[in-house]
């Protein structure tokens, strides 16, 4: 088949809203874009274990501790599914991890903010997982089959994280004054970084059009951001917390909320590596990876020895 035929077949699959599978032909740029996006997504799951892991040892009740451990464990699982999806495109986990710890690949900017109180655990579930779901639900229909399938499993668990976070906040706002203050302070701190999780505004997002054409992306950044804001407003009201945006108001004509502009300079700085915890997160991941090198080598050496022993036994059987 000529390249033109292959390209035509690919385009036909995309326009029929069918899935591209690993053995199908795909344009190199499509493959590269997917690798970058899936790797970035996988890294986000893994780096995202840190801000929440920060409170596992101090969780203030045994039930909250269990919920938190289970959630962080889920995130490790999400990372595993996604690295496996990336592997179907010909890049292995080890190589991607190297890129992460050398800061040659990115992860979601939201995880470069610190968790400073236990309310942050609830707010991350409510807002950050909530925003992640808005981003990720459309990816369940992504044109690349393995990524779409990974997202289906992930989205189910994310929606649960969101509900657990909200339930923690509900308990806290019904608790002591100090707890209510913690929830409001945490909401104030996380709101804008969460709004920025959807990426730059559409007129400043050069890759969006191509990704949408390929069926990798289904909605623009601003569409997803709007969906998130509209969802968060009534939930904030149910909690009795305010959102720190004086321009946030219902627009009857648009049937949607108007909202203010986030500080895009801060966003750019965090993406460029100057967030409050960028260096700390990457250093921690590097430490785990490097501390674990001897363990991974041992596992490999043991597996090799076992394989050699099995082969040796087979030879004996043949000889006998």
């Amino acid at each position: 088949m000529s390249t033109a035929d292959l390209e035509q077949g690919f385009a036909a699959t995309i326009s029929a809203d069918q899935r591209i599978e690993p053995r199908d032909w795909m344009p190199e740029a499509y493959r590269r874009t997917l690798i970058r996006q899936i790797a970035q997504h996988a890294h986000s799951e893994i780096i995202g274990m840190q801000p929440e892991g920060n409170w596992i040892l101090r969780a203030p009740s045994l039930r909250r501790k269990a919920i938190l451990i289970a959630k962080v464990q889920d995130e490790a699982g999400h990372g595993l599914y996604l690295y496996a999806a990336a592997e179907t495109l010909g890049v292995d986990r080890e190589a991607l991890t190297e890129k992460l710890i050398e800061s040659r690949q990115k992860y979601s900017s939201i995880f470069n903010y610190p968790t400073l109180s236990f309310a942050d655990i609830g707010v991350i579930g409510w807002l950050v997982d909530g925003a992640a779901i808005c981003n990720q639900v459309p990816l369940c229909r992504c044109s690349y089959g393995p990524y779409a399938r990974a997202m289906i499993r992930i989205c189910k668990e994310e929606s649960f994280h969101q509900r657990q976070g909200f339930e923690l906040l509900l308990a806290m706002v019904n608790g002591s004054d100090a707890q209510r203050e913690m929830v409001q302070e945490s909401t104030n701190r996380w709101w804008w970084p969460t709004v920025m999780m959807f990426g730059p505004p559409d007129d400043d997002s050069p890759n969006t059009a191509q990704s949408m054409e390929w069926g990798i992306k289904r909605h623009t950044n601003d569409e997803l951001r709007q969906r998130f804001v509209d969802m968060a407003v009534p939930q904030a009201a149910a909690l009795g917390v305010s959102l720190p945006d004086p321009e946030l108001v219902w627009n009857e004509e648009r049937k949607a909320h108007d909202y203010g502009d986030p500080d895009w300079e801060e966003f750019k700085a965090v993406v460029a590596g100057a967030g409050p915890t960028n260096a700390q997160r990457v250093a921690r991941r590097r430490r785990a990876h490097e501390n674990g090198a001897w363990v991974r080598e041992a596992a490999q050496a043991y597996a090799d020895k076992q394989a050699a022993r099995a082969a040796g036994r087979k030879d004996c059987e043949v000889a006998a």
Binding site: I46, M49, I69, V72, Q73, A76, G79, A288, G292
Partner: peptide
């Protein structure tokens, strides 16, 4: 958690 030598071990 988040310190293990491999993600499978974190889990």
């Amino acid at each position: 958690v988040s310190n293990a030598p491999e993600l499978e071990e974190d889990v």
